[in-house]
Amino acid sequence: MSHGNMNLTLKVWRQKNTKATGKLETYKVTDISPDMSFLEMFDVLNEQLINKGEEPIAFDHDCREGICGMCSMYINGRAHGPKSAITTCQLHMRSFKDGDTIVVEPWRAAAFPVIKDLTVDRSAFDRIISKGGFISVNTGNAQDANCLPIPKPDADAAFEAAACIGCGACVATCKNSSAMLFVSAKISQLALLPQGQVERTSRAKNMVAQMDEEGFGNCTNTGACEVECPKGISLENIARMNREFFMANIKE
C-alpha cells in the first residue's frame, strides 16, 4: 500500500428494485488513494464486485464536475458527505481516514422512490418544473440584452437561485423530506426577472400545488437544506416563495 492510501469498510444500501426491500451490505476496499473522488472509489469497488462475478452497485453520476446534480449519495448521515457546498463527485477520499467505516444510503423520501441500490427517481422535480418553471417567449432571435434593464441586485439574486442543479440534497437532508428549497429557487429565479412576470401568479400557485401533490413534506424552517445545498441556495428564497404564493392567492 503506497503512502497515505487507505483501507475502508463500506456499508452500502443494496435494493434490487423499487418494490424489493433493501438492506445495508458491508464491503471492504483497500489501497484507496486520498486523491480519488468518492465516485472513483465506488468505481474501484464496482470493478472488484464485477471481477468476483457479483452485481455492481447502481449509483447515479454524469458530469463528475459538480454541475449535473446526479450523484445522490447520503454519506454518514449527510447529503453528499461530510463537506458543505459540494456534490459527491467533488468529495475526495482525503476527507476520510484509514480504517473508517462509511455508510452510504440513497436519498430517502416517499417522493423519490429508489430505482435500484443508490439511484432514486427524481422525476417529481421534473413534474414540478413542467407546472411553471419556464417562461413564454416569442420565437426568433434573442433581442439585445440592453433592451431589458435589470437592477444588479435582482440579477444577482436571480442568478444565485438559478444555480440550483436540482440534485435533491435539500429533500434528502430535510427531516420532513420537504422540497421547498428547490421549488423556491425555481420560482425565485423567474419572479425576479422581467421575463418571468407574465406567468408569475400561476407559476407560484401551480408549482406549489404540484409540490404538495408529489408527497413532499412541509417546511419547518430548520435550515438544514441551506447547509447541505451544494450550490448554497439560501432560505431567503423560501421566504420569497411564501410571499409569491400568498400574493398569487390574493390576486386570483
Partner: peptide, 16 residues
C-alpha cells in the same frame, strides 16, 4: 409519511 424509510445514520446536529 413523506419519509417512510428512515436513514440508518441520522444527520444529528451538523446542519440544524
Amino acid at each position: 409519511k413523506a419519509r417512510p424509510v428512515k436513514y440508518a445514520v441520522p444527520a444529528g446536529n451538523v446542519s440544524s
